[in-house]
């Protein structure tokens, strides 16, 4: 059915559910086109498996345009594969060669338990946001949007931090499974904006506490997260969070 000429060997993590052990399983694929996306290559594999009466590989994906943050494959030792600044769904087969062997594993972290095959549970991220990743403003409370000028540089920096898609690649690649890049991106976005100031020191304390409670590891500043983040979220955010955390704990009078 496919139009290309690449032959590949896939080694894919198969695991029935969280209570069973998984293993890498080998699959051979032929006729893959370099114009396919990595997930379309998986569609071909699944179509094959279904035809053969086997169970297709379960993996998370939705938008397939690099923005929802749902896709999450650890490909040949790197989250979202070999190309920088792209998500799995935006990775194309032209980044591989005919005859390649590709190992595909799920994100691995205690805080991201495997649900099935390549699908993991990232709800820990939502709980971190629920702990403080917001500005407490009820609908209808807002003043005119232009009554609060924000320097462009600051607004742009906040936007860059806000570009995080919550994919979890940072956690997946970090040797410590630390979530500092994700958490700091949200904290930074709000800390950079005047609207975020009233809750600034509360927020950093409660979000860090929740992050710790979820069982993520501790940052050792290896920088792997920044290098692998598909949205180029900067390590500066972590520094900013660290700074704010110190201010919150040792300077501000707010305790949580």
């Amino acid at each position: 059915m496919s139009t290309g000429n690449m032959n590949l060997t896939l080694k894919v993590w198969r695991q029935k559910n969280n209570n069973t052990k998984g293993a890498l399983v080998d699959y051979k694929l032929a006729g893959i086109s370099p114009d396919m996306s990595f997930l379309e290559m998986f569609d071909v594999l699944n179509e094959d498996l279904i035809t053969k009466g086997e169970e297709p590989v379960v993996f998370d994906h939705d938008c397939r345009e690099g923005i929802c943050g749902m896709c999450s494959m650890f490909i040949n030792g790197r989250p979202h594969g070999p190309k920088d600044l792209v998500t799995t769904c935006q990775l194309h087969m032209r980044s591989f060669k005919d005859g390649d062997t590709i190992v595909v594993e799920p994100w691995r972290a205690a805080a991201f338990p495997v649900v099935k095959d390549l699908t993991v549970d990232r709800s820990a991220f939502d709980r971190v946001i629920a702990a403080g990743g917001f500005i407490s403003v009820n609908t209808g409370n807002a003043q005119d949007a232009n009554s609060l000028p924000i320097p462009k540089m600051q607004a742009d920096a906040a936007f860059e931090a806000a570009a995080c898609i919550g994919c979890g690649a940072c956690v997946a690649t970090c040797k410590n499974a630390s979530a500092m890049l994700f958490v700091s991106a949200k904290i930074s976005q709000l800390a950079l904006l005047p609207q975020g100031q009233p809750e600034r020191y509360r927020r950093v304390q409660s979000m860090v506490a929740q992050m710790d409670a979820e069982g993520f590891g501790n940052c050792t500043n290896t920088g792997a997260c920044e290098a692998e983040c598909p949205k180029g979220i900067s390590l500066e955010n972590i520094a900013r969070m660290n700074r704010d955390f110190a201010s919150a704990k040792f300077v501000s009078e707010e305790t949580i």
């Binding site: 500005i135 609908t139 807002a142 949007a145 232009n146 000028p149 976005q189 709000l190």
Partner: peptide
């Protein structure tokens, strides 16, 4: 118009000009 106000209040970083306005 209320939508823009609400979103800005929530910290949505909409694009701005150098003068700091939207």
């Amino acid at each position: 118009t209320n939508i823009i106000d609400q979103c800005v209040a929530q910290g949505v970083p909409l694009a701005r000009e150098y003068g700091g306005l939207l």
